[in-house]
């Protein structure tokens, strides 16, 4: 990639560009994307959304940081091993449906209830959320791990 660009006359490509506009925008847009990711995540189940898109969007937000800054900065901001993130996500997604073994209900049977929280009013508590957290973590973790590995290979 780099050599092709060089041949085309782009000599300065190798330098890390400190693009002030990009970095400033990324800082703001990052939070918007993350919030939208969580909105999509919690919108799931009854309306379009869920763990998968939520996870992808969250990963996209972090990848934006990766483009605007560099890998070291991102690692400092989010000091998580993405492999562990995948494992934790899978554990969430696998353990929750298996819990239904102990209640004598078929696999994946969901449980839900409504509780009254002072400010928010009636809130639905649903066991599927825990499964979805697992999906969220796995998807975000694997997307980030892939990008990170590709980035490392190039350097």
């Amino acid at each position: 990639m780099k050599s092709t660009l060089k041949k085309a006359g782009y000599n300065k490509v190798q330098k890390q560009v400190h693009d002030v506009f990009l970095q400033f925008t990324a800082k703001v847009v990052f939070f918007i994307i993350i919030l939208f990711a969580f909105k999509l995540f919690f919108a799931g189940h009854y309306t379009p959304g869920g763990g998968f898109v939520g996870g992808l969007l969250a990963a996209a937000a972090i990848i934006l940081l990766l483009i605007a800054f560099d890998q070291k900065t991102v690692e400092k901001v989010i000091p998580i091993d993405f492999r562990l993130l995948i494992a934790v996500g899978l554990a969430f997604a696998a353990v929750l449906p298996t819990l239904s073994f102990f209640f004598g209900t078929p696999f994946f049977t969901h449980q839900h209830t409504y509780v009254n929280v002072p400010v928010f009013g009636e809130v639905a508590l649903h066991s599927a959320v825990i499964f979805d957290i697992g999906v969220f973590l796995t998807v975000a973790g694997s997307a980030l791990l892939m990008i990170k590995l590709i980035a490392e290979e190039d350097a």
């Binding site: 492999r83 562990l84 995948i86 494992a87 899978l90 554990a91 696998a94 298996t98 239904s100 073994f101 004598g104 209900t105 078929p106 696999f107």
Partner: peptide, 21 residues
């Protein structure tokens, strides 16, 4: 039947997750 039928799928998945950890 609820538990038994799922065991051949869940045992390897759990083994995989434990190994990932």
């Amino acid at each position: 039947t609820n538990i038994l039928a799922l065991l051949p799928i869940m045992i390897p998945i759990f083994a995989g997750i434990i190994m990932l950890f």
